[in-house]
Amino acid sequence: MKVRVAAVGDVHLGEDIRGRYRPRLEGIEQRADVLLLAGDLTRHGTPEEGRIVAEEFRDLRVPVVAVLGNHDYQSDAEDEIIALLRDAGIHVLEDDSMVIPCGEARLGVVGGKGFCGGFAGKCASEFGEPEMKAFVRHTREIADLWHKALKGLDVDHRVVLSHYSPVKDTLAGEPPEIYPFLGSYLLAEAVDAEGADLFVHGHAHAGVEKGVTPGGVRVRNVALPVLRRAYAVYCLGGEDPESC
C-alpha cells in the first residue's frame, strides 16, 4: 500500500517565466500518485500570477494539493488566488485536511501555509504588546487546527503540507538570526502529538532538504532552490521498500 508523493515549493511563478515549469511535469503520473505544492506559488501574490500558477499545474494526471505561502499574500488577493486554483481543479488546504485515494491506499493530507515564531527555547511568546500576542497566537491557532485535523484522519498514510518549517534541521544554511521568521516548533509539536509519515515545507531557500521532528516525523524542505529539480518524490510505506 505504498504511496508516491511528489512535492515542490517556492516556484514563484510570474509572467517572465510563464510556461517554463510545465514541461518538467510531463510524465509525473509515472513517477508519483500525487503532487504537493508547498506555497510561494507566486512572487507578488496577484490574481494574474495566480492564473499563471493555475495554468501551469492544471489537468495533470495526478491530484494536485497546494497551500499558499507568504508571497501569495503580498497583494491581499489570497482568496482570489485560492478560487482560481480551485477552478483549475487544484485542491487548496486552509488548515484542514483531505483524503486522496491512491490505488488501494488512502492518503491523508493536512496543512495550510503555517506561520513562524521560532523554535523551542528561542522563540516569541504570547506576552506583552497586542502585536506580539497576535503574531504568536496566529501560529498557535494554526497548530491547534492541524492537530485536530490530524486527529480526525482515518487513512493509511498521513502527510503534512506547509509553507513554513516545523524544525531547525532543514534551515541549515540560513542565517540563524532569521530562524524565528522561517518556522515554528508549534507546528512540529502538533504533528508529533498525532503522528505523520512526512512533513513537507518550503520557504527556506538556503536551507537543506532533510530533517526530522523531535517526535521522529521525517521533514523535507522542498523549496525549489533547495531541490534544484522540478520536484522530489517520496515513497511512503511500501511493504517492500525496494519496490518503491
Binding site: R4, R20, L224, R228, R229, A230, V233, Y234, C235, L236
Partner: peptide, 13 residues
C-alpha cells in the same frame, strides 16, 4: 538563476 532539472531518484521513507 535556479536551474529546474528533471526530477531525480525517489526517496523511500
Amino acid at each position: 538563476v535556479v536551474e529546474v532539472r528533471e526530477p531525480g531518484e525517489e526517496e523511500t521513507l
